[in-house]
Design a binder for these strands. Sequence first.
DNA 1: TCTGGGGTCCTAGGACCC
DNA 2: TCTGGGGTCCTAGGACCC
Length: 417
Amino acid sequence: MKQQWVGLLDCNNFFVSCERLFRPDLENKPVAVLSSNDGCIVARSQEIKDMEIPMGVPYFQVKDILKTNNAVVFSGNHRLYRTISKRVFATMETVQNPIEQYSVDEAFFYFFGTEEEARQQILMIKETVEKEVGVPVSVGISLSKTLAKVANEMNKKTTGLKLLDFEEWSQINLSYPLASIWGIGRNFSKRLREDGLISVSDFLAADPGRVRRLYGVVGERIRQELQGISVLSAKNRELKQSIMSSRSFGKETIALSVLEEAISYHVEQVSYDLRQAGACATKVAVFISPSRHGDFVLQSRYGERDFLAPISTTRDIGVIAIQLLRELYVTGVPYKKAGVRVSGIQPFAVQQLSLFTPVAKKIPDPLQSTIDVVNRRFKTGRIHQGFLEGARKYSAIANQQSPAYTTSWGELPVVKA
DNA sequence: TCTGGGGTCCTAGGACCC
DNA sequence: TCTGGGGTCCTAGGACCC
């Protein structure tokens, strides 16, 4: 009998697999990837997981263990990961279309067919991606997104393929912990536990009205998904809702000028991404915050401003972002992080002009387009706009980055026959 | 000494309106 | 003394995800 299936492809240990793609000698060796500033562990090979080093742990806490075990540690090389990610999904689309990309290393898909056809399909997807791109993936398929997640987890370490049907799920959910379900995090699972709900079957046995009342629409949706009713809909959005750029500084700063530089940098990033997406935005938000661990924790500031009309040029967004920053800034606070986010994103084509827009702007802006071309072409001596002075006093630390294998001619890997 | 960055969605509460 | 109720929109903040 044909039916609707929901599947999930997930790249195994994605950042590590990207590094291994260009360093096959690291196969079967412990490999970890760090966050910006070499702060935390954000990706672990299976060997690292087996050492029971958790995700997100501060690097300095496990540095010694890693060293003892001869682990290879990389600073994050996110440009590389993005290009590999694009290859994965472009390849996946040759055998499964459409797909719904969920994160840098995951995509959902919908498949209509018999159980046997679904099994063949997930095998085909896995084999195609692994052969064409070279990173290991696992594919799970079931009756809803939430159950596809469960399926995906099940055989990750073995075949990397799993079809989870209703009968099998009904058996295993008796002992399946709610806390491991996608969408149930630390706080939610604590509440559930306090209410006496531990396993999925506890939750499914509860009165639906009570679930709705106690846990809101979020709880209700999870309940349905767990029953095999797909309610987290397919949403193939053309554009993101928001685009953001933010970073912790290598060292704290109290200087407004340093923050202005940082904010200018982030404005450059988000407005460039915005233009690349063929879009403009109606809002910009600026945020600055001190360390999450010191005496100034409560001094985080956030401010948002609407534009008169949708814009995408670096200098227009920059002027407003800098104004915002000056309003938010408090003298004497040691800032550790700054960021910019644009939202109200819409395509160039369907701009809703404000009543008070003096003149419709010519979009895309010709000067801006020219600057983008120059900046894409030359790695050094790029044109900056606004407040960037060159010296990056706030720049992040990344001591162990791999080469730009895929995005810089000078760093292409060399193959020796 | 050293604790990431980029997203989405929901909710509570205030302002405002009729 | 008595002092509505319902709707919408916005914002700030929280929870969760990878």
